[in-house]
Amino acid sequence: ELSWTAEAEKMLGKVPFFVRKKVRKNTDNYAREIGEPVVTADVFRKAKEHLG
């Protein structure tokens, strides 16, 4: 699991709890794919757009 900024964690907190774990995993995987060592708010937004 990658490191997350406080802002990205806050955004994740707005995701319904029953899918939060999956969203975190998918976002981590997306960040790795694009070469990001940390999940930022920008990476979170891009993952959301990319993953739907």
Rank of each mutant, 00 (worst) to 15 (best):
E1L: 10
E1M: 09
E1N: 10
L2I: 13
L2C: 05
L2G: 04
L2N: 04
S3K: 15
S3W: 11
S3A: 13
W4H: 01
T5Y: 02
A6Y: 09
A6K: 12
A6D: 13
A6L: 11
E7P: 04
E7K: 07
A8Q: 00
A8R: 00
A8Y: 01
E9D: 05
E9Q: 09
E9H: 06
E9P: 00
K10R: 13
K10I: 12
M11W: 05
M11L: 15
L12P: 00
L12E: 00
L12W: 03
L12N: 01
G13F: 13
G13I: 09
V15Q: 05
V15C: 09
P16T: 03
F17N: 09
F17H: 13
F17M: 13
F17K: 11
F18R: 12
F18S: 11
F18G: 12
R20T: 03
R20G: 02
R20A: 04
K21E: 15
K21N: 14
K21L: 13
K22G: 07
K22T: 12
K22Y: 13
K22A: 13
V23E: 03
V23K: 02
V23Q: 04
V23S: 03
R24Y: 03
K25Y: 13
K25S: 10
N26K: 12
T27G: 02
N29E: 13
N29Y: 08
N29V: 08
Y30V: 03
Y30F: 12
A31R: 01
E33P: 00
I34A: 08
G35C: 06
G35V: 03
G35H: 06
E36V: 11
E36N: 04
E36D: 04
E36F: 07
P37D: 12
P37S: 13
P37T: 14
V38L: 10
V38R: 07
V39F: 00
T40Q: 01
D42L: 06
D42Q: 07
D42H: 07
V43K: 01
V43M: 04
V43E: 02
V43D: 01
F44V: 05
F44C: 02
R45D: 06
R45H: 08
K46V: 05
A47W: 10
K48W: 15
K48Y: 14
K48R: 15
E49P: 05
H50R: 11
H50M: 11
H50S: 09
L51R: 14
G52T: 12
G52I: 13
